[in-house]
């Protein structure tokens, strides 16, 4: 039957092979020709938007690209679904936003930050998500 040293070889061999394959696939995924994100369109405003997204931990309630908390709506296609004016109203609201009872944190963002957030959402909204965009964003598709 299997000996201990054979078992160790199985462990080490399997690990090395799959590790190399994993690194290879990672490099492959980030080849510019395989880009699905319009990487070149990441403006300084989009970056600022991401910074705001992180420093306020928006992901603690919302999902984006399907990642985050499950307490508040998915925001991947939010501009498509709601339009810029609605998003601006949410971010600048002087009272906690919550038309359906469940409350958001009140951010009262200034115009520049609001603009950056919207640019960030617009960039996110154009990523090719291998089909998930259609599932996650019913309203945007119905409009078309």
């Amino acid at each position: 039957m299997l000996s201990k040293s054979q078992a160790r070889t199985f462990f080490l061999g399997g690990t090395v092979v799959t590790f190399l394959a994993f690194i290879g696939l990672t490099v492959y995924s980030f080849q510019p020709s395989n880009d699905q994100t319009n990487h070149s369109k990441i403006s300084s405003e989009v970056v600022r938007g991401k910074e705001l997204w992180e420093t306020n931990n928006c992901m603690g309630c919302h999902t984006i690209l399907g990642e985050g908390g499950y307490y508040a709506p998915e925001l991947t296609k939010v501009i498509d679904r709601r339009g810029e004016a609605y998003v601006k109203a949410v971010l600048q609201s002087p009272i906690p936003w919550g038309p359906n009872g469940r409350k958001m944190v009140k951010y009262q963002m200034n115009d520049a930050d609001t603009k950056a957030m919207i640019e960030y959402f617009k960039w996110i909204g154009q990523i090719d998500l291998n089909g998930f965009d259609r599932v996650v964003s019913p309203l945007s598709k119905e409009k078309k």
Partner: peptide, 26 residues
């Protein structure tokens, strides 16, 4: 050894289950 062998064999490339729908290659 067998158990941790199975872990890495499946788990390393299994990371891909988080990459389906976040905007990377199919």
């Amino acid at each position: 050894y067998v158990i941790v062998g199975l872990t890495f064999l499946s788990g390393l490339l299994g990371t891909g289950h988080h990459y389906y729908y976040i905007g990377v290659n199919k």
